[in-house]
Amino acid sequence: MRSVSEDSQPSVHLEIRDLTMAYGSFVLQRDLNFTINRGDVFIIMGGSGCGKSTLLRHLVGLKDPAKGDVFYSGESFTESEPERRREILRGVGVTYQSGGLWSSMTLAENVGVPLGEYTDLTPREVSEVAGFKLALVGLRGFEDFYPSEISGGMQKRAGLARAIALDPEVLFFDEPSAGLDPISSRLLDDLILELRDSLGATIVIVTHELASIFAIGNNSVFLDAKTRTMIAQGDPKYLRDHAEHDDVRRFLRRGEEA
């Protein structure tokens, strides 16, 4: 396992260069430039409809950029061959806003799919590892449940268990705390930090939950819906008081004037 403390110098893990996102001729965000360091808890924030989730879809290759590129450890993702993309995606875990669990499979089978796909483990070993991953997110004993039989918060955690099945280097979260009660949301934040420390993973979170942003984020980018580009970058706690843009400060203070 990798550990954050080993490399004292922050090294760039993901680099987003001149990224422009568009649906047909409608440009959603243009000229995004930022880097995400290894071990960061990086927050992608912004108002509703500004393209946060779409940015995440670009980062994991679900959508191709209109212009620009995404680099994983210096390697271009957009221009990679499909086989190479697959290799890169192997080191990536994604959790989805609506869970994204395969409804025809039990939780253990869900977590087992990536293991079966990418490793040479025997079916018996796969189910043991899957059980362990489910235990990590607090779902021990739920191996044989179907996604429809558990609550929304548990589905999110099961989605997380599937995302960490292959001990990814980067973990993406799409609105992890949406629809969770405050306590579950807090527990999920703690779990994310715990995973960052134990897996040594880089965490990228799309969210607009202020409590989570300040509790776990150490770097961030703010996407603006009006100007359709990023207008702030840095530690969210610093941005709350010192962001150049009024909108960013207001956003981070829940609308109160700075």
Binding site: R57, R86, S98, G99, S103
Partner: peptide, 16 residues
């Protein structure tokens, strides 16, 4: 409905 539930996205990001 798998598309709505992002199940198809999940497959794609897993390289399947």
């Amino acid at each position: 409905s798998m598309k709505v539930n992002q199940e198809i996205d999940a497959l794609e990001t897993m390289g399947i």
